[in-house]
Amino acid sequence: MKHDRLERTLKMNRTRFKRRTGIYPETFTLMEAVLVEREAAKKKSGRPAALSPAEQLLLTLEFWREYRTFAHLGDDWGVHETTVQRSGTGRSGPDCQWAVSSPRQKGSQGSGERLPDHRH
């Protein structure tokens, strides 16, 4: 189910994708690449993540866009609410928040768009 959600979103046209996530598909691809790179650099120990980096990113963007509860997002994504919280949606979740600032810090051109404001 969760994979269908990502695939459906990635198949949306540019305008619909932006309306759904708050960013353009090109920016999503840049952010995903940063997350994949960071994930590859991590030391692997313990249980593997329930969601792929792309799924974590989409879930985080949905949280920032809609401000839904962790429980509701967890139900929609088929994961526990603590998994949602660890995916970078919370203020202390570093992974996806790191991806938001990293493309600009590395001097990437990107799309020049403003990212969604996730502060409360």
Rank of each mutant, 00 (worst) to 15 (best):
E7S: 14
L115F: 12
W64A: 09
Q109V: 10
S52K: 09
I23Y: 00
K42A: 04
S111M: 10
Y67R: 14
S111F: 01
F17C: 02
D95E: 07
S52F: 02
Q56N: 06
T89R: 13
K18W: 12
R14Q: 09
F28G: 01
R47H: 08
P103C: 09
E55N: 03
E39H: 09
W98A: 09
A41S: 11
C96L: 05
E113K: 02
G90W: 07
G78I: 03
L61A: 02
H120W: 13
A40L: 11
D75S: 14
L6F: 03
G22K: 07
F63M: 06
G110A: 11
D75G: 12
L115I: 09
R19Y: 06
G74M: 10
Q56Y: 01
F63Q: 03
W64Q: 05
Q105V: 15
S111T: 14
K106G: 05
M1G: 15
W64H: 11
V100R: 10
R86T: 01
P116K: 11
G107S: 08
L35S: 03
G107V: 11
L6C: 03
H120R: 15
S92F: 12
D76W: 08
P116T: 10
L61N: 02
S45V: 09
V34G: 00
L115V: 05
Y24Q: 05
V79K: 12
Y67F: 13
G78Y: 07
R119C: 04
P116Q: 07
G88E: 01
L115Q: 02
T60V: 02
L73Q: 10
L59D: 01
G90K: 13
V84L: 05
K106F: 13
Q85M: 14
V34C: 07
P53R: 00
A71P: 06
P116G: 06
L6R: 05
R5K: 12
V79H: 08
S111H: 02
Q97Y: 02
L58D: 00
A41I: 03
H118T: 02
T82S: 15
E26P: 00
A49Y: 03
G88C: 06
W64T: 06
S92M: 13
Q56I: 00
D4K: 09
N13G: 04
V79I: 11
P94A: 15
R86K: 13
E66P: 00
A33D: 12
G46S: 08
R38I: 06
W98G: 02
L58C: 02
A54R: 08
L10E: 06
T29G: 05
F28K: 00
Q109M: 08
L30F: 06
G46R: 09
T82D: 15
C96Q: 11
D76N: 10
D117T: 15
R20P: 00
F70Y: 15
S108M: 14
T82H: 14
W98V: 04
P94N: 13
D75E: 15
D4G: 13
K43P: 00
R68E: 15
T60M: 10
S45F: 04
Q97T: 04
R114E: 13
F17R: 01
Q109S: 10
P103I: 05
S101A: 15
F63V: 04
S102F: 09
R16Q: 13
Q56V: 03
R5M: 11
E113F: 01
R68P: 03
